[in-house]
Design a protein around this nucleic acid. Structure first.
Lengths: 341, 341
DNA sequence: ATGAAAGCGCTAACAG
DNA sequence: CTGTTAGCGCTTTCAT
């Protein structure tokens, strides 16, 4: 059933039916009722392809996921982008999974073929070139995260990673730890840089000089966590606590501690950060974390809304939103951190 | 730059240009050269919206992710669906994240608005209603996994989960373990059912009666793994080994073992299965697993190809593909399983 | 308040 | 081999 057929059935012109369905004010209230009812009855669904061609809008937003060719991937949790935000406004969510050495072309094609009205930029990196590129080609975008080093203004939404790690470090410092090993993600990722800064800031505030041997930056895998922790434990003056940037590397850290014959929570404390808690139940009994499932979802929804706003605004001004993370203490991944004896 | 403009510049009709660009055989070789060159020079990109309307094809495939309203989500790893398979053929990948109580409507809308040419069904459940629905409304689909209990024929690609767990169980049995705790995912998920069957089958082959107290089925979270393992360890006759269905629950299992004062790999062996190794490096030093990163990616690519095949085939016959998983022994998550003393 | 007509940019018969 | 002519199903002036 298409518009024309529906119009014929109603004895109206397609124009009027279209106007009635799209809420144009000039339509007679009674007519609108009739149209609505008929549309519902005949299960009429407008053909998106036609709307797109006629209006010149794509009615879709893109999410481009860079697959790192040299590294393990960063895999955004798409469940967080509850389709509702998009679908409620009639937008589709397009996913492009592309090797990072091919990103440029992807964005240009997205723009020139008119596949999307805007994109969400995931996993921003230091001096991320995508921001300049998108600005240049005029494809609206919102960054989920931020890109340190970028000078041109752009819209973003980020979680305060610096503050999260600052507080986690302070927490350990308060327990008397002074040698705290940082097991961070790859530090060309923006979030990893900020986390490191938070860690350093906390140390600086207590006049503790950072020790390069206690700061590892690598992929957030089990093996990398194991390697980093093992190396640090083997130092003449090993750390008494670890601050780990992901659940998975945390698993490797635990293994390293145990392999060295130490006991987690007695000899060595571990704080594991993670902002993807899809594998943990909400609210209760979680380890030390700096985000909760619900807040991550909230962020996803907010980014989506920012983009839709941006698209529908004639002359949009860049918007920025910084979310504070929660600090939650529990013990799911192991015993809670202990004071140094 | 659109087709018409390009045609004018070339002094040709849009038709000819279109034919030249789309590889129709009747075009003069020399003409084609000229057209191609001009298209390249003027950076011509066809307008997808117009192609879609004109051909009546959506040039897009949908991935519908059901968000369980009552449970933690199943979050497919989309990086596995390397866009290349789709983009090479000019297809977009559409993502719909919807609450599971709203799936019906989503599929119907997808069909009636013509947003996609077909869909990939993720995370199939026992007697999954989606298969009947999609068959009924005539939207082509391929199931990533299988749906136990479904009678109508359909296309699917699955990893042999039964066999994977059969082999893992056999491995432990060969080491002398007879009390093996199964910590499984939710058993309304098809893959979880099959894994359980593999476990049971291995026990049956050795004439070992299954013990209901050694079989847990729950969400694959850290907390659930901890709870299941703790409960089993507290039994008068506790298991000497655990077979765990995910890396994350495995973390909880390890914690439970340690909390009980036992040593992993000495008192209790653990085999962790996982088929999402995004957090592990390829190839080396992985724990006992039944799939590798590359094979998971391979599967993703294959499903995508099956769907594209299906779409472009006039009268498609259902295709079925069962992949054998690899059994890899390593020790990233802990010591390798040991023989019972 | 409603309708007629043109057009979005491409493809696909049908001619020649 | 190339061009002419109609659409695809909707929106959007411009009339009435």
């Amino acid at each position: 059933m298409n518009l024309k057929e529906l119009a014929t059935k109603l004895g109206l012109s397609p124009t009027t039916v279209s106007r009635a369905l799209n809420g144009y004010p000039e339509v007679n209230a009674e007519t609108r009722e009739r149209v609505m009812a008929a549309a519902h009855r005949y299960n009429y669904a407008p053909n998106t392809r036609a709307i797109r061609l006629a209006t010149g809008r794509a009615l879709a937003v893109g999410h481009v996921i860079p697959i790192m060719t040299k590294h393990e991937i960063v895999n955004p949790v798409f469940a967080d982008f509850i389709g509702e935000t998009y679908s409620r406004q009639g937008y589709d969510m397009l996913l492009s999974v592309v090797p990072d050495d091919d990103e440029d072309r992807t964005y240009r094609v997205l723009k020139s073929r008119g596949s999307v009205d805007g994109v969400i930029v995931h996993a921003p990196r230091l001096n991320d070139p995508r921001i300049a590129l998108l600005t240049e080609i005029g494809l609206p975008f919102v960054v989920h995260g931020r890109a340190t080093g970028t000078t041109i203004p752009y819209s973003w939404l980020d979680v305060n990673n610096r503050r999260a790690f600052l507080r986690a470090t302070e927490f350990l410092l308060d327990l008397g730890h002074t040698r705290i090993g940082l097991i961070n993600g790859l530090e060309f990722m923006d979030f990893a840089i900020r986390r490191r800064n938070g860690y350093l800031e906390a140390l600086a505030a207590r006049a503790i000089a950072p020790d390069a041997r206690l700061m590892f930056s690598d992929e957030m895998t089990e093996a990398a966590g194991f390697h980093a922790a093992s190396t640090m434990i083997a130092l003449p003056d090993p750390p008494t606590a670890f601050l780990v940037a992901s659940m998975i590397s945390g698993m490797g850290v635990r293994r390293a501690v145990e392999a060295a014959g130490r006991v987690v929570g007695r000899d060595i404390s571990i704080i594991i950060h993670d902002d993807d808690l899809s594998y943990l139940p909400n609210g209760t009994d979680v380890p030390i974390f700096t985000a909760t499932r619900s807040s991550v979802r909230e962020a996803g929804r907010m980014v989506a809304e920012m983009l839709l706003d941006l698209i529908s605004t004639p002359t949009p001004a860049p918007r920025e939103r910084l979310l504070e993370a929660e600090l939650i203490i529990g013990q799911s991944t192991g015993p809670a951190p202990r004071a140094v004896q």
